[in-house]
Design a protein around this nucleic acid. Structure first.
Lengths: 153, 153
DNA sequence: TAAGATAACCGAATTTTATTCAGATGATAA
DNA sequence: TTATCATCTGAATAAAATTCGGTTATCTTA
């Protein structure tokens, strides 16, 4: 069982906001020595509380800012269909997220492409060719109001 | 206008996977010198193609792995309501993402909390108290099949 | 095409940061 | 009480980022 004290939570908060913060800066913010901070970070990494460090990019600048939330229903809920769908989804680079959900649809996937034309292509050439897919319904994102990876502890 | 060559795209790919890669490693992977890689990274940061670097954490390990996609409909589409809703949503730490969308609902928000009870509390105490909200519909996530921040260029 | 400007590159030097080390402190349990 | 363990500290070392001087490639335009 992993227990995190107040300092750990603060530390995780800082690193979720800016992974490039140096141990020196962090030690100042947390009122600890360099080494103490260093060892806390290493422990969090060892425990896999911190899983990885990534660079985030501006989707507009790289022309991948056409976002669609696509609701997917499977034909039948056969184990075979489920496994096949989940396996294929993992391969599709346009799909950043995929959730198995309750409700009218089985899955919700988050898709990033360049524009509507690229989405149409994605839909007909990549998504709907997966066997077992019954129907899809696309919800287009008009505006991204908020998007953060920061989980407050 | 920002143009990215093949090397930039590869570099961005690597940094999206692991922001802790050293320039030395990257220079080996890209077949360039230390300095060349360094300057490319700095340029991408200056251009705000790379916006920031963050640590990602395991939501299970910190007990924030109860995820809900909540569809929100506003009472009336008054500018006042829209601005008020968007302003309030930004303040809610449980809401990691919020999208203004086409279709039957106005917004889809992605919420992370500890469990169903925390979600109920969030709903009654934080979300539905925002003025202008008409109705909400919660879709519970049974399983996270895929979740990546890596956009392939 | 040739000159000039600019961008991208290189290797070496320097500065800063991460990491290791030896030992001190404090909490916990037998 | 004493042994054990986790956490801490400051200093030393190793490794990384950053700067520097100068070269090469690319592009513009006279």
């Amino acid at each position: 069982m992993i227990t995190l004290d107040t300092i750990d939570k603060k530390l995780i908060g800082y690193l979720q906001q800016d992974a490039k913060k140096t141990t020196k800066e962090l030690s100042f913010l947390l009122g600890l020595s360099n080494t103490a901070v260093y060892e806390r970070i290493k422990k969090l990494e060892r425990q896999q509380v911190i899983t990885n460090y990534v660079a985030l990019i501006d989707k507009e600048k790289v022309e991948k800012n056409f976002m669609v939330l696509c609701h997917v229903k499977l034909n039948q809920h056969l184990k075979k269909n489920i496994l096949q769908f989940e396996k294929e989804i993992l391969k599709l680079e346009e799909v950043l997220e995929c959730y198995h959900v309750s409700g009218d649809y089985d899955y919700i996937i988050k898709v990033f492409v360049k524009n509507m034309d690229a989405y149409r292509k994605f839909l007909v050439e990549k998504l709907t060719v997966i066997s077992g897919i019954g129907s899809t319904q696309s919800t287009f994102v008009i505006n991204e109001v908020k998007n953060t990876t920061h989980i407050v502890l």
